[in-house]
Every structure is written in structure tokens, then in C-alpha cells.
Design a protein around this nucleic acid. Structure first.
Length: 494
RNA sequence: GGGCCGUUAGCUCAGCUAGGUAGAGCAGCGGACUUUUAAUCCGUUGGUCGUGAGUUCGAUUCUCGCACGGCCCA
């Protein structure tokens, strides 16, 4: 049994009183003529006299966010999806019954008001009520008006309260939607086809990550929530869909942090006849398009750092970045042993399974990544840690791949796709060996995918971009939880 | 998984150092007030102090475990 606070009891009583007066406290619908935003747009620039001359009677609806009571009159703030407007309710302007109903309304209730606009003595655009209607009774009080809701746990668990109390939170999610729309527009204009591929996969592929496992009762088989859509999107390229993209959720059964949520949104796109070098240019173009669309500039502030997105962005190989930005000596690149020794000196934990390439990548993660604030393409990844990427023609132990770093974080991963089925089978086999040796993140053999490659995939390049992290950058949000409406939390035991 | 910090009224926070069973502001309730802007003025209700144990005559306060959350590390 949940305890009922006196504040709630008080509101329940008011609801009962209203019901006894014959008032439906949860009526259906309400026809309004104007929103708060439209009212400001229409009358915002008019002087007091003009407002009164021009304003007809309008109906508007919203939530009562502030209430200043003078006994026989009240000022209230009404908030709707477009903004906030003040209403003035006078006893001598509405019927006695309606005034009684109004007196039983609380902060947080939804109200419908009919009236005409005027300007108050202090100049605020205000609707003078001729008629009011209770649209929904709120039984619980809203968070405090001045400080809002600051308890982080409550903000995430009860996001609706966060949205009611904190206007800037809503703004983040409006921007999130616009960012995704801008990305979608960009690809549609470039003749990409938006597709949807399975979230539930019999073999989880396309990324080095631990999957969530589930079970399909009717088929009697295990299924995995996808860690990436990659292998399905490339099957589509085999099928002749030469430019495809998908913006959707991936699931990774890993830790939760300021930049990881178990489910997160990924953009992946594939472009036949392109190379990873083409994608670097395309990526610069994409970000500049989105930034211009959303922020009107390609220079932004993120957590106190200024980030300039003007192309071209710096390109540097993984090895050179370690040499130049972390003073790693040449020795470390000569062999695994030297790299192990150096990593241990840096107190970076390794696994016995880690090959030379994996160790270099770990060194990079610790020593270089946090410092890559300006957009930077890191190229020249070891083949060992890139089982789906095409080998570099000159240096087969690296691949034609880049990762993009902005604000000290990985934002994108792209490569020219491996379309040689024989090489692909061998790469899968070495992943399987790693898995058998205990690496839970290693990839699975996907024979059907190899079969698809045997039919022939045209030379193709593909890229994945972490949408949540892009939204973090563009909304100056420090945590991924700030850009995900309902971030994952442990269920609270009562 | 480890370290540090937090959890007190519906919300925002004091109180805990030096143990004597809780305070403020907002919201609520009662009253005054028909142009206010966090309205104002007078009065007032509301708390198993996250949870379980221990120490103690006595624990919101000290100790330990647990739960949930935050940050950092792995």
C-alpha cells in the first residue's frame, strides 16, 4: 500500500466535491482555437490598445503552472506544448458556478479557457476568462516551481515530471528529433534507401560486443538482440540495394556509464562503389549539414571546449597518433612483448588473448582518445581487431578503416567492407577461436553471411554513427542519460 | 567488480562535526486582498530522517550490512 500524503488527499477531496457538483473531472477532448505560441505570435508585438481591438474570443487549453489568487480574482499561468500564457480570472466576468469550479482547481490541473486577449498594467499578454472548464484533475502536486525537479534519479525514472518542470530538458529532446530528421534528410537526398533489419537475430553479428539473449517459444530457438545491423545491411547491398541506411536501436549487454546505455541508437549506412576515404568526406559533409540545420553554425561549445567542424578534419594513423600525442616509443610497435611491457607500465589491464593490434588499440583508448577534442579521423586500424573490414592493399595487417573522434569520444566507425568471402570466413574463424578461448565479445561465425558474400557484394564502404553521442555534442549534454528519454535503471524494490 | 559521495515533508534544502526521537522556503490548508509576475500579509497541517542490524539509558546523528542513485576507476 502506498501512503497517501495530505496534499493528495486534499486534491481527491476537491475532485469529489467537483463530482458532487455534477462536474466530470476527466471529460473527453476540448476544442481550442489558439495555442500559447500562436497567441504570442499574433499579439506579441501589438500595444495594449491594438490587442484589445484585434482580439476576438478564443478557446485555449493547458496545464496550470502558477496560480496567484486574490480572492475574487486570480492570475494563472497556462502551459501548453507551444509555450506559456497568463490568464486572468475575475469573479465578475464568469458565472458564479464556474468561479466555484475554478476555486477547486489546483496547480497541475488542465484547464480550458475561453476569452479575449489584453495587456495587463505590467504589459503582459493575458487572456481574460469569460468561461472556463476543468479538463483534467491532477491528484499529485507538481515539483516546486522555483527549483524544479533536480533529483537525478527522479528525473530519469519519472521523465514526465522532468519534462513538466524543466523546460530545457524538453528542448534537448526536441533537438534530438530535429537532428535525426536532418540526418535522414541528408541521406534521402543522396538517394539512400531507409530500411529496417532484424532486432532479433539468430547469430548476433556486426560488432565486437556481448549480446542480450532471448528465446522464441514457437520456434523453440535462442535469439539475440542485435549488437549491430551491419551484416543484414550488407546482405541488402548484395541484393542490389546499393545505398541503404538504418537509424535504430542496438543492444549491448555491457556496463552503464556516462556514455553507455544498454540500448542506444545507431545510424548505419552502406554505399556501394565507395571507399572509406569517400566516407570521410561524406561524414564531414553530414556533420556540417546537420550543424548548420540545427545550430546555424559549424562551431559549437561542448562542456567548455570549442569544437570547430570546418572541413577537412585531421586524419592520422593509430600508430602515428600514439607516437605524436602520447610519446609512445618506436619499440612498442615492433612486437607484442614490447607493447605488453609498455601497457603494464601505464597500468592498462590486458588479457592474455590480446594480440599486438588489440594492445595498441587499448593504448590508444587510454592515451590518445580523451585528448581528441576536434573532429579527428584515426586510420590504419589493425586487421586483428577489424574482422569485417577490407585489408589495406599495401599493408595487409591493417585495414581500410577509420574511427571518428570528437570531444574525446568515439563517434563513428567506418571501413571499406570486406567482400572477399574466403578472407571473411577466415576472419570469422579467428573470432571463433578467440571466443572459444573465453573472449565473450568475440564475433560468431555467420555462414549465411559468407554465403551472401559468395554471391558477390560490390565494393562497398559502410559507417556507423552513434546518434546519442552526436546529440550529446549538439546539446552540450555531459551524460548519455540526458539525451535518452528513459535511460535504464535498476528497478526499485519497495 | 572497486573507490568516493548522496538518500531528511509532495518539491528544494538545513540539522549530523562534539548522540537527548527534527527545521526553513515553496506547495497544501484557513483567513484578508479584483492588474499579479517566485504576488503580498496573518495563522496553520504535514516526517516509519532509504532499509536492516549493532553500540548506547537513548541513534536522523556513531559503526556495519543491504537497496537505490551520482561521479571516478576497471
Amino acid at each position: 500500500m502506498e501512503k497517501t500524503s495530505s496534499v493528495i488527499e486534499e486534491r481527491i477531496k476537491k475532485g469529489q466535491k467537483l463530482k458532487s457538483m455534477g462536474i466530470n473531472i476527466y471529460p473527453a477532448g476540448y476544442r481550442s482555437d489558439i495555442t500559447a505560441g500562436e497567441a504570442v505570435e499574433r499579439f506579441g508585438n501589438m500595444d495594449a490598445e491594438t490587442v484589445e481591438k484585434e482580439s476576438k474570443s478564443y478557446a485555449m487549453a493547458g496545464r496550470i503552472m502558477a496560480l496567484r489568487d486574490f480572492g475574487k480574482a486570480s492570475f494563472i499561468h497556462i502551459k501548453d506544448g507551444t509555450g506559456r500564457i497568463q490568464a486572468y480570472i475575475r469573479k465578475d466576468r464568469i458565472s458564479e458556478d464556474k468561479f466555484k469550479i475554478f476555486k477547486l482547481m489546483d496547480l497541475g490541473d488542465f484547464i480550458g479557457i475561453r476569452g479575449s486577449f489584453f495587456r495587463t498594467r505590467t504589459g503582459e499578454l493575458t487572456i481574460l476568462a469569460e468561461d472556463i472548464a476543468l479538463l483534467t484533475k491532477a491528484l499529485r502536486p507538481l515539483p516546486e516551481k522555483w527549483h524544479g525537479l533536480t533529483d537525478v534519479e527522479a528525473r530519469y525514472r519519472q521523465r514526465y515530471l522532468d519534462l513538466i518542470a524543466n523546460d530545457d530538458v524538453k528542448e534537448v529532446f526536441v533537438l534530438r528529433s530535429r537532428i535525426i530528421q536532418a540526418i535522414r534528410d541528408f541521406f534521402i537526398k543522396k538517394d539512400f534507401l531507409e530500411v529496417e533489419t532484424p532486432m532479433m537475430q539468430p547469430i548476433p553479428g556486426g560488432a565486437t560486443a556481448r549480446p542480450f539473449k532471448t528465446f522464441h517459444n514457437a520456434l523453440g530457438m535462442d535469439l539475440y538482440l542485435r549488437v549491430a545491423p551491419e551484416l543484414y545491411l550488407k546482405r541488402l547491398v548484395v541484393g542490389g540495394l546499393e545505398r541503404v541506411f538504418e537509424i535504430n536501436r542496438n543492444f549491448r549487454n555491457e556496463g552503464i556509464s556516462i556514455r553507455h546505455n544498454p540500448e542506444f541508437t545507431m545510424l548505419e549506412f552502406y554505399m556501394a562503389y565507395a571507399t572509406y576515404e569517400d566516407l570521410m568526406v561524406l561524414t564531414e559533409e553530414l556533420f556540417n549539414h546537420v550543424l548548420l540545420e540545427i545550430r546555424g553554425t559549424n562551431v559549437i561549445e561542448y562542456q567548455g571546449e570549442t569544437i570547430d567542424f570546418s572541413p577537412p578534419w585531421n586524419r592520422i594513423s593509430l600508430i602515428d597518433s600514439l607516437k605524436d600525442m602520447a610519446d609512445v616509443s618506436d619499440e612498442v610497435f615492433k612486437g607484442r612483448e614490447q607493447a605488453v611491457e609498455f601497457a603494464e607500465k601505464c597500468q592498462i589491464s590486458l588479457s592474455e588473448r590480446d594480440g599486438h593490434g588489440k594492445i595498441l588499440a587499448k593504448l590508444f583508448d587510454h592515451l590518445v582518445e580523451p585528448g581528441l577534442i576536434r573532429p579527428t579521423f584515426i586510420i590504419g586500424y589493425p586487421t586483428e581487431i577489424s574482422p569485417l573490414s577490407r585489408r589495406n592493399d599495401e599493408t595487409p595487417d591493417i585495414v581500410d578503416r577509420f574511427e571518428l573522434f570528437i570531444g574525446g569520444r568515439e563517434i563513428a566507425n567506418a571501413f571499406t567492407e570486406l567482400n572477399d568471402p574466403v578472407d571473411q570466413r577466415e576472419r570469422f574463424e579467428s573470432q571463433v577461436a578467440l571466443r572459444e578461448a573465453g573472449d565473450k565479445e568475440a564475433q560468431f561465425m555467420d555462414k549465411d553471411y559468407v554465403t551472401a558474400l559468395e554471391y558477390g557484394m560490390p565494393p562497398t564502404a559502410g559507417e556507423g554513427i552513434g546518434i546519442d553521442r552526436v546529440v550529446m555534442l549538439l546539446t552540450d549534454s555531459p551524460s548519455i542519460r540526458d539525451v535518452i528519454l528513459f535511460p535504464h535503471m535498476r528497478t526499485k524494490q519497495v
